[in-house]
């Protein structure tokens, strides 16, 4: 307010682009993030080319080859139905990545508008939305997801919805906080002063400036969503047989752990590596997009 409003409008997008480019550069200097990104790219390619990469159909049972240890024919062994573990892991990549992305998408779609509205309007609207968010945050995410999936019934799609809804208050809270800061900016005030529509202000002036924390949250949230979905499938509430899903594979193999360690070990490693990779990338993104590091 004390400064005269002399900043020309045309310089803004350029400055913003420079900021993103700087962030990407910073990201690539972070070895953890690069490894995470590489693993994720590999997983995405695996998911896309699953039918080419998998040596066997994932659901084909072969009674004569049940519980076989890893061999040349079955690189990671077979389960109690004689299904090829490697092929199931490869197809499972599709399920896990889809669950991660869809759940986070749902969470962001619900959470962000709520946060935007609450943060921008304030007052009783903010009060109402914030209390609902607080209420939802009082329950651990996995418990909330469990409740939702018990109501909707066990299925993979319902797990995506449940995990998404359970994670949505985090987005609402982060977005609300950022909006509170962003709406005090001079350019928002000027936009309001010249009579811009509220929706335009939100979408054009506020949203782009609060994306950084959301991207970080979404990336880290993907890891959490994959883990939650695997946990729900392990409990029999998610992917239904014979779908090859990592959590379900763990669950099906657990009764054979003493006889066939490979049924549970490899899906376990797959979940661990995926979640670790996504977390590494998320950490890297947080460091590179952090406002406090901007100079």
């Amino acid at each position: 307010m004390s400064q005269p409003t002399t900043v020309p409008d045309t310089t803004k997008p350029q400055r913003s682009e420079g900021l993103w480019r700087k962030s990407v550069k910073r990201l690539f200097k972070n070895p953890g993030a690069v490894i995470g990104l590489a693993v994720i790219v590999a997983l995405v390619l695996t998911a896309i080319f699953a039918p080419v990469l998998a040596p066997h159909p994932p659901n084909r049972q072969d009674p004569l080859r049940s519980l076989q240890a890893p061999s040349a024919e079955h690189r990671l062994g077979t389960d109690q139905f004689g299904r090829d573990i490697l092929s199931r892991l490869i197809y499972g990549t599709r399920v896990s990545l889809r669950v991660g992305l869809v759940a986070v998408g749902i969470a962001a779609l619900i959470g962000m508008p709520l946060g935007l509205v609450a943060g921008y309007y304030g007052g009783w609207i903010d009060m109402t939305i914030s209390r609902v968010i607080d209420l939802m945050l009082a329950f651990p995410g996995i418990l909330l997801a469990l409740v939702i999936v018990s109501i909707l019934g066990p299925s993979l799609f319902n797990v995506m919805v449940a995990v998404g809804v359970a994670a949505s208050p985090n987005y609402a809270r982060v977005v609300r906080g950022s909006v509170l800061a962003a709406k005090e900016n001079v350019y928002v005030e000027s936009a309001r002063a010249i009579g811009a529509y509220v929706r335009g202000i939100m979408m054009r002036h506020i949203l782009p400036n609060i994306l950084a924390p959301v991207i970080v949250l979404a990336t880290l949230g993907t890891a959490g969503a994959i883990l939650s979905a695997a946990a729900l499938s392990f409990l029999g509430l998610g992917a239904q047989p014979p779908t090859a899903e990592w959590g379900a594979m763990l669950s099906e193999g657990r009764n054979y752990m003493r006889l066939a360690w490979w049924i549970t070990t490899f899906p376990g490693i797959a979940i661990m590596v995926t979640v670790l990779a996504v977390n590494l990338l998320g950490d890297g993104l947080r460091d590179s997009l952090d406002v406090r590091l901007r100079t």
Partner: peptide
């Protein structure tokens, strides 16, 4: 029962009967 269900799913599937498991 879950395991048997999956075996039936596969064996009945071979003759064109679709099996849906209701846990």
């Amino acid at each position: 029962y879950g395991e048997l269900g999956q075996v039936l799913q596969s064996q009945l599937g071979d003759v064109g009967i679709e099996v849906v498991l209701q846990p």
